[in-house]
Simulated assay, not measured.
Amino acid sequence: MSETKITKKKKHDNSIINHFKKEVDEGLSNAEKSLPSKYFYDKTGDALFVKIMHLPEYYVTRSEHEIFKTQSQVIIKALQLNPETYFELIELGAGDGLKTKELLRELIQFNYRFEYMPVDISQNALDKLETNLNHELPKCKITKEHGDYFEVLELLKENMHPKVILFLGSNIGNMPDAVATDFLSKLSDNLQKKDKLFLGVDLIKPASIVLPAYNDSQGITAAFNLNLLDRINRELEANFDLKFFKHQPEYKESDGIAKSYLVSTKAQQVYIARLNKRFDFYKGERILTEISRKYNDTILNSILSKTDFVIKGRITDSKAYFANYILERK
């Protein structure tokens, strides 16, 4: 690696760790403590989430995967893709690419001209995805992008190629509605007219279906959430004692929002050396680690009304647990 590349990598790594420090400090300093769910995904978190996706209780991945596996041609038609027109297929939060590979196979089989650009905050996930795709789909042209979604899109905005953005897994549901509106507005600012967004959202369902997806019988989801504290221990030199925190999910069908908390099981103090700061927890105090909004057409239309996207289509799985919306930039 050249000296210039090493310097850029160090700056990039420092930027990521500084963001991490800042957001952990802000989240744990609030009256109602919280931590950003995006930091679930380090090497350990990636591996745990792959396990979660295959759990019998976790219908989310399975439902969206069914859409990609059984309706790839429907997706291609809905996105109005032309085999003769080159386009960039950009996936935000690509992960292991399980679902996307179904679409990539179809595009390659029918000789569509495109480049696949997975974007992820986890370098580990990107490296594994690239290795996997080179083995499974060697004809797929892949350019991985590590970092913040909008920083990457800002760079890609320079060219005038048609773009299809994939934002799957109901990741939009990790944002409060106002934040989701702001996110989609910023996303549209980085696109040209007629560019598409293929948005995956989890639909509102009874608690009997939703809650087990966030509290599986094997305890994998609990380990996934607790790993966030372990990551802070490792990277920010903290002394969270994981045995004194427990995972606690909540969901009400009436508001359609699932929430995950880490709850302090005793009064305790945690020191984070990289922040040189102590944080007090009372017994029963909660850290909000994730929200997962569930949607219907009314909720989504309300969010989109303040953006430059319009709904052009909707595809659901056979149980109507999940939907992929085709949105177009006005």
Rank of each mutant, 00 (worst) to 15 (best):
residue 300 L to Y: 03
residue 30 N to G: 08
residue 254 S to F: 06
residue 219 G to R: 02
residue 151 E to L: 10
residue 8 K to R: 12
residue 266 K to P: 01
residue 33 K to G: 04
residue 311 I to D: 04
residue 274 R to T: 12
residue 267 A to P: 00
residue 88 E to Q: 15
residue 184 L to D: 00
residue 170 S to I: 05
residue 173 G to V: 03
residue 71 Q to G: 07
residue 248 Q to L: 15
residue 166 L to I: 10
residue 137 L to P: 02
residue 12 H to Q: 15
residue 142 I to Y: 07
residue 263 V to G: 03
residue 195 D to P: 11
residue 202 D to Y: 00
residue 145 E to K: 14
residue 86 Y to K: 14
residue 327 L to H: 02
residue 11 K to L: 15
residue 156 L to A: 08
residue 50 V to A: 13
residue 49 F to N: 02
residue 277 K to M: 13
residue 140 C to G: 03
residue 304 L to W: 04
residue 34 S to W: 12
residue 48 L to I: 07
residue 25 D to W: 10
residue 89 L to C: 01
residue 41 Y to D: 07
residue 190 N to Y: 12
residue 99 K to G: 12
residue 156 L to C: 13
residue 281 F to K: 02
residue 95 G to E: 07
residue 96 D to K: 05
residue 186 K to E: 10
residue 44 T to M: 11
residue 300 L to R: 01
residue 103 L to C: 09
residue 205 K to V: 01
residue 244 F to V: 07
residue 200 G to F: 00
residue 233 N to T: 05
residue 20 F to R: 10
residue 52 I to R: 05
residue 56 P to W: 08
residue 125 A to P: 10
residue 205 K to H: 01
residue 49 F to A: 03
residue 322 F to Y: 14
residue 51 K to L: 06
residue 274 R to F: 09
residue 142 I to D: 04
residue 106 E to W: 04
residue 312 K to S: 13
residue 169 G to D: 11
residue 212 P to Q: 04
residue 316 T to E: 12
residue 136 E to A: 09
residue 81 L to E: 04
residue 20 F to N: 10
residue 84 E to K: 14
residue 40 F to E: 09
residue 127 D to G: 01
residue 59 Y to G: 01
residue 204 I to P: 00
residue 13 D to T: 14
residue 139 K to T: 08
residue 128 K to R: 15
residue 9 K to R: 10
residue 112 Y to K: 06
residue 222 A to H: 02
residue 211 L to R: 02
residue 87 F to V: 07
residue 168 L to A: 08
residue 228 L to Y: 11
residue 207 A to R: 15
residue 120 D to R: 11
residue 37 S to C: 15
residue 315 I to R: 06
residue 97 G to N: 15
residue 128 K to A: 12
residue 108 I to W: 00
residue 99 K to D: 09
residue 179 V to Q: 13
residue 50 V to R: 10
residue 194 K to L: 09
residue 303 I to S: 00
residue 240 F to G: 01
residue 317 D to N: 05
residue 153 L to E: 06
residue 123 Q to H: 13
residue 84 E to F: 10
residue 78 A to L: 12
residue 43 K to I: 14
residue 63 S to V: 05
residue 210 V to A: 02
residue 123 Q to D: 14
residue 10 K to L: 15
residue 67 I to G: 06
residue 82 N to Q: 06
residue 177 D to E: 15
residue 194 K to V: 06
residue 102 E to V: 10
